[in-house]
Nucleic acid binder design. Sequence first.
DNA 1: CTAACATGCCGTCAGTGTCT
DNA 2: AGACACTGACGGCATGTTAG
Length: 311
Amino acid sequence: MSKRGRKKYVQTNIRQMAMATVGSQPARCVTDSVVESRSAHLQTRAGRTAVPAVAQVATITETDESADSEGVIDSHKHREILSQRPSYRRILNELSSDVPGVPKIGEEKSEEGGSPPGITTMAVPTSIYQTSTGQYIAIAQGGAVQLSNPGSEGVQGLQALTMTNSGAPPPSAALVHYAAQAADGKQQFFVPGSQVVVQDEETELDPSHMAVATGDMPAYQIRAPATALPQGVVMAASPGSLHGPQQLAEEATRKRELRLMKNREAAKECRRRKKEYVKCLESRVAILEVQNKKLIEELETLKDIYSPKTD
DNA sequence: CTAACATGCCGTCAGTGTCT
DNA sequence: AGACACTGACGGCATGTTAG
């Protein structure tokens, strides 16, 4: 939290903390509450559940019925049923699996491929509509959605593909997530997907720089195996070389810090994907509404043509 | 102006699925 | 079987909005 360096409003915080503890419904973010509000009543069991919220929303009706009629269902059975339902990530991947031009969530090729950043290979549109705001909406086979501005040259000018990973950070931005300037000028980075943790001895970091170094913990660097180690950098001790209880404790702390760091990054990535998924759904809703309107109009036109005149 | 509420983001924990 | 990734849930913080 300190990395944001924002001003604290103690009064507000105390009040909000009190709210949270008293039990009144605390303010929740939309992205969370979208699914939580509907699935909150499912949290009847003590403790936390790991049921995918999307799955909960998708099966809210049957869950309600079963809960009302039977009261308590077998938790194991319930868990089995719910665990079979895929996450939103998988849902989105399945939705876009039949569209070559729509990359799946988690795929990096859209950024790494030949297409320019933010522009995805597009499928041939099968339907083109214009919104009330003048934007053109093209629907490709399988439901790929493309938007273009009025000034663009029709379909050829399509630019933003809403259902893509265009919101993903560029590779360069994703490369280094934490960078800290140590007192001696040494740079320390966390690179996701890297392979080697390097201990930078005697380097003290600003505690505000997240979990790279906490308290009196030494700072660590994660490097690619091929990377030449800078002078003064010592590889972290392997568990096999540890003996004393203090070293074991240090190793445990080290592992924990690493795990927290990874989980932090994973959570960020997960939220990014979730946002993307929600945007995708919203886009689909918009497109389907337009499509529906078109079809209704078409139906009316056909009715006018083929219905017998009653003059 | 201020308290209360809303919104958005974040870090962490824990359960589950997948991979090796 | 263990390691790891993914993600829901929870609580905290900062900031915006609104009613009194």
